[in-house]
């Protein structure tokens, strides 16, 4: 086999892994959009906020320490303890549930029945608020997130595959962390699907997504379901935040990278959970492969725009995305 072909395969594999992370963020979008028609611009920032909170709790950081120090002239920053990763993850999840409750109670509860664009604007406000709040609470420096996930090349896989190519080929490079992310994503999607299909709350979620009046009449509390949905989106954000943070550190650019979820949604459709996954993988693989094959001819750096252009092409030819509900024009 030619080495170029083998490198091509490696590019595809790495693209798949990057795609998993896009898919995780896109998944959070889809959950909220289906249940409430809200396009949640803040999903990426929620991932960032979750990761910041997780690191903060694990390291025993004092929240709002800058603010406290500025007001009281103190100089505190750490409690002096460390919290085990598992416990910190549970605590962070608690914070995300609290966030879900507050968002519903103080923002969206007052916006029920408003135009989608107004809901969307509200989430933009929410995104910037949360970003600033995260900064205020935990500080803005880049943080390392280490919850004990194995990282780095899989030597085993490299050895296993090194025989495939010639002398210059040392085997496929795969980051173990990426594999973990993929496995976690699969587990997440399967459990979310089971939950939505078979549990009482999952049924209620689907009902609310379909018709509010009807949902009310069968005894569903819209408020409860929306808090639940935002909590689940918070959980998905936490998972995405952990994976992404472990890979490239917890930094504020995470919320920008998360915008890649937009083209993912254009591809997969805004209402489809499998769509979010497949869309994420296509974008992940597509941009890596494009950079690998076409990039050198046109000066590289194609990863910055490839996803958006691909989404544009999709918008023109298949506006509902690969898996989205068919848009039927009524005339």
């Amino acid at each position: 086999m030619s080495d170029t072909f083998l490198y091509g395969i490696e590019v595809v594999m790495n693209g798949l892994m990057a795609g998993v992370l896009y898919a995780l963020v896109a998944l959070g979008f889809v959950l909220i959009y289906k249940a409430s028609g809200i396009f949640n611009y803040a999903q990426g920032v929620m991932a960032l906020f979750a990761a910041l909170t997780l690191v903060g709790i694990m390291e025993g950081q004092v929240p709002f320490s800058h603010l406290i120090n500025a007001i009281f002239g103190t100089n505190i920053h750490h409690f002096g303890w460390e919290v085990p990763a598992i416990l910190a993850i549970f605590l962070t999840m608690g914070v995300m549930v609290l966030f879900a409750y507050l968002v519903q109670r103080f923002v969206f509860r007052h916006l029920v029945g408003q135009e989608p664009i107004i809901l969307f604007m509200a989430t933009i406000g929410l995104a910037y608020f949360l970003e600033g709040f995260g900064d205020l609470m935990w500080g803005s420096e880049i943080k390392k997130l280490d919850i004990g996930l194995v990282q780095g090349a899989s030597v085993w896989f490299e050895d296993l595959t090194s025989g495939l190519g010639g002398d210059g080929f040392y085997g496929f490079y795969i980051d173990v962390l990426d594999v973990t992310a993929a496995v976690v994503a699969v587990i997440l999607v399967v459990s979310l699907t089971l939950f939505s299909q078979y549990s009482k709350q999952g049924r209620a979620m689907r009902a609310v997504a379909d018709d509010h009046q009807a949902a009310l009449s069968v005894g569903i509390s819209l408020n409860f379901i929306w808090i639940l949905v935002w909590s689940i989106a918070g959980f998905v954000a936490l998972v995405a935040g952990i994976m992404w943070g472990a890979k490239s550190g917890v930094q504020f650019s995470l919320s920008l990278i998360a915008l890649k979820a937009l083209p993912v949604l254009m591809l997969g459709g805004f209402t489809s959970i499998p769509g979010a996954i497949v869309g994420g993988l296509i974008i992940g693989v597509g941009e890596k492969l494009f950079e690998f094959m076409i990039g050198p001819m046109i000066g590289g750096a194609t990863e910055a725009w490839f996803a958006y252009v691909l989404a544009l092409v999709f918008l023109v030819f298949r506006p509902q995305g690969l898996f989205g509900d068919k848009i039927i024009e009524r005339v």
Partner: peptide, 21 residues
């Protein structure tokens, strides 16, 4: 409405409210 439903009162609507999907 959901609390009323829990009390054992069910209803239909003049303009039909079903889960179309």
């Amino acid at each position: 409405p959901y609390q009323v439903a829990e009390q054992g009162i069910a209803r239909t609507f003049q303009n039909i409210a079903l889960f179309e999907g």
